[in-house]
């Protein structure tokens, strides 16, 4: 068990990265950020601060206008897993086949992939649901499938784009705890985009607060609470204090340009 996460060597760095879209919107401006191996980093900020754009740049789905995204180790394409805001499952495929998809695209047969998938189903608490179709599952269960699919290639880096934003609070807390457990067991690195101060503080060892227009890093905060963090941590005074501190910084970031936080998407 890692009790001091994020102590690993740097995994990748964004160096003065900027991204301007063809319609002239500057989504990111001069963003520098280093992600260490084993980190759980949250990108926290108002709408339009470029959190999702940053994630897409890291994933290689989009390329920066200026600056570079530099990996410190030579890693293959399957070193990144991605979990979207929606579960984004194939509706015509059952749970097993949905998790199999990334391996299947790399040419792995159902039989070769089976042990890894069974193991993951266990870990995300979905064993016995392998034959279920997505529409038969609840929102939380769909998200578990989506996380399992993100992890099935055993990525070094898991990118999560507001994965729990659409879930109810009870389900969200449950998934937060389970995600932390998975992370501590598997020791992958996470970059987690969220709107929620509470979620970012609960999960991460470092919170990157971003400001909008143009999207940029406002301040980085270390969350100095030890892992494992379970349900008791959620009600501790320590957690409340950390949340207040983070919330204040986020407030400052939003007040830099009033109105940035309430543009409705």
């Amino acid at each position: 068990m890692v009790d001091d996460p994020g102590s690993g060597a740097p995994l990748l760095s964004l160096r003065s990265v900027g991204k301007t879209f063809s319609n002239g919107v500057a989504a990111l401006d001069d963003v520098s950020l280093t992600i260490g191996e084993g980190d759980f980093i949250s990108l926290l900020g108002p709408s339009g601060c470029g959190k999702s754009t940053a994630l897409r740049l890291i994933a290689g789905l989009s390329s920066p206008t200026i600056g570079t995204v530099e990996w410190h180790k030579q890693l293959g394409s399957d070193c990144v897993g991605f979990v979207f805001q929606e579960p984004t499952l194939l509706p015509w495929a059952n749970v097993f086949d949905n998790i199999w998809l990334p391996l299947r695209l790399k040419g792995m047969s159902r039989r070769q992939a089976e042990p890894a998938i069974r193991d993951l189903l266990d870990r995300v608490r979905l064993s016995g649901f392998d034959k279920a179709m997505p529409r038969e599952l609840s929102g939380g269960m769909k998200m578990r499938v989506s996380i399992a699919r993100g992890l099935v290639t055993r990525p070094r880096l898991l990118l999560m784009d507001e994965p729990f934003a659409a879930l109810d609070e009870i389900t969200r807390f449950r998934l937060n705890t389970d995600l932390l457990e998975l992370w501590r067991e598997e020791r992958f690195t996470v970059v987690f985009v969220t709107h929620s101060v509470f979620e970012s503080v609960f999960l991460s060892n470092r919170v990157v607060v971003m400001a909008a227009r143009p999207g940029r890093v406002f301040r980085e905060l270390d969350v100095a609470a030890p892992y494992p963090r379970g349900e008791p941590f959620r009600t501790s005074p320590e957690y409340a204090a950390l949340c207040r501190e983070t919330s204040d910084v986020l407030g400052e970031a939003i007040h830099l340009n009033p109105g940035a936080g309430d543009d409705g998407h």
Binding site: L61, T88, P102, L105
Partner: peptide, 14 residues
Amino acid sequence: VDRNLIDLFKLNGA
């Protein structure tokens, strides 16, 4: 097709 699913396929080198 869901844009995110297309991204997922790209990400996995489909």
